[in-house]
């Protein structure tokens, strides 16, 4: 076996071991404690009214009572199975499947991100090619960049008057900066030699932009896009918690209000996995445009 492959296997083995440890810790931490069991035994002669109350609270009196309300592995598995078995159900505004909610969030991120790319990449070209514009626009960028995207939310809600579009606007505003900065940097640092080749060949400006500058700056631009996508995926959850209605962020908040911690944990996992997949997609794209000199 090649050493590299061997390393991969060993790493996977350790990852699995760590995962198993985490599950074990979770299981032990949520397992019913001795004292709780005694208490449960003492109160076993409770009235049927108390049973009824317990049922209403989502707890069955027959199930072991837990000191902490944190769900155990079995409950978690049950929720995951139920959510994954039917991810696209729609029982009205407050009860939609995880797939539908995820779809809303992805659509918002995709739209906001796409608009940001359409604005940031051409503007970044301008900044990268013209030191004058770079200087002129720099103060605006420096002030606007550090603003938390959620701070725009009230303004967006007031002017746009639509919570869904406001969410898209917030995604736009948070993904525009890394793309803008990276495009400007990538375009400004295209190797002098290549520009000189284009000059001596009297290449027309548009042809130069698409055949020389764009491929030369593409790896840097894609780095910017990857960072932007990461930030956008962070922000969408918070934004949807704030505006509500639909989306994975709203799903988390709604399940919290339902006190369904298993659903919250499940949603957290889904957010993590989706974020990872998005990052992988951009990593792949980045690899496609990277060149070796």
């Amino acid at each position: 076996m090649k050493p590299a492959a061997q390393l991969g296997w060993r790493a996977a083995l350790i990852s699995l071991a760590i995962f198993a440890c985490l599950l074990l810790v979770w299981h032990l931490a949520t397992a019913p404690k001795e004292s709780a069991r005694i208490q449960a035994g003492a109160s076993s002669a409770s009235s049927s009214a108390q049973d009824e109350y317990a049922k209403l609270m989502g707890k069955s009196s027959s199930a072991p009572v837990k000191t902490s309300g944190f769900p155990g592995l079995a409950q978690m598995g049950e929720t995951m199975r139920k959510e994954l078995a039917n991810p696209f159900y729609d029982n009205g505004p407050n009860d939609k499947g995880i797939g539908i909610q995820l779809g809303y969030s992805l659509a918002r991120v995709g739209l906001g991100f796409a608009i940001a790319a359409l604005v940031a990449i051409p503007l970044g070209f301008l900044l990268g090619m013209s030191p004058l514009m770079q200087r002129a626009l720099n103060p605006f960028i420096q002030i606007l960049k550090p603003i938390s995207p959620l701070a725009w939310m009230p303004l967006a809600l007031y002017t746009i008057k639509d919570s869904s579009v406001s969410g898209i606007f917030v995604i736009f505003i948070c993904s525009v900066w890394p793309m803008l900065m990276n495009t400007a940097f990538g375009v400004a640092s295209v190797r002098r030699d290549w520009l000189n080749v284009a000059k001596t060949l009297e290449v027309a400006p548009l042809r130069k932009a698409f055949l020389v500058i764009l491929p030369a700056a593409a790896p840097t631009i894609l780095t910017g896009m990857r960072i932007s996508m990461g930030i956008a995926w962070l922000v969408i959850v918070a934004a949807e918690m704030l505006v509500g209605g639909t989306g994975i962020g709203y799903f988390v908040w709604n399940e919290w209000n339902n006190l369904s911690l298993t659903s919250v944990i499940f949603a957290i996992l889904v957010i993590g996995v989706t974020g990872m997949v998005l990052d992988l997609v951009f990593a792949r794209l980045q690899k496609l445009v990277t060149y070796t000199e």
């Binding site: 000189n196 080749v197 000059k199 001596t200 060949l201 009297e202 020389v212 491929p215 060149y291």
Partner: peptide
């Protein structure tokens, strides 16, 4: 200014890697 009448071979070859 530059012109197609004069071809240039650069010291660092200046090929476009893409």
């Amino acid at each position: 200014g530059p012109s197609l009448d004069r071809g240039v071979v650069f010291q660092s070859h200046a090929l476009m890697p893409w």
